[in-house]
């Protein structure tokens, strides 16, 4: 695995629609009306229903897990939501290595993360540190 600074993670891509959001609402108990119904989304000032911020967080975690496999451990993670995820858009979670540190426990890799949709709207920014044990 290439752990050099600048290396990009293979993106995690999903088309987001009610099918995704309903499944996430079911496991998270997040049946908030503006995630479930276009009319309620419009009441919240959006064009229609919009996706859960926590699902963006899961997509970033999926991105990291798919890249690191079982050899890495996520030590910390941050996320800042920027814009809502609208229905029927394609969301891509991306990341790149921004620092690598040799520690007593192994290589500690710092990642810059983000999600954006197919209309070039940035949905969330994040960071993570992943430890690959020596």
């Amino acid at each position: 695995m290439d752990l050099s600074v600048g290396t990009e993670l293979p993106p995690f891509v999903r088309e987001t629609r009610m099918e995704n959001w309903n499944r996430f609402a079911a496991v998270m108990d997040e049946f908030v009306p503006h995630h479930m119904d276009d009319d309620d989304g419009r009441i919240s000032g959006m064009p229609g229903a919009f996706g859960m911020g926590n699902l963006q967080s899961s997509y970033m975690h999926n991105l990291i897990r798919d890249w690191m496999g079982e050899g890495g451990r996520i030590c910390n993670f941050t996320i800042q939501w920027q814009q809502p995820n609208f229905k029927n858009t394609i969301v891509t979670a991306s990341g790149r290595i921004i620092a690598v540190e040799d520690t007593a426990e192994g290589k500690l890799v710092s990642l810059e993360l983000w999600t954006e949709d197919n209309n070039d709207r940035r949905l969330a920014n994040g960071t993570a540190k992943v430890l690959f044990s020596a």
Partner: peptide, 10 residues
Amino acid sequence: RKWAIAVYFP
């Protein structure tokens, strides 16, 4: 299982 299926769907 249910959590993982939801967040990786489809």
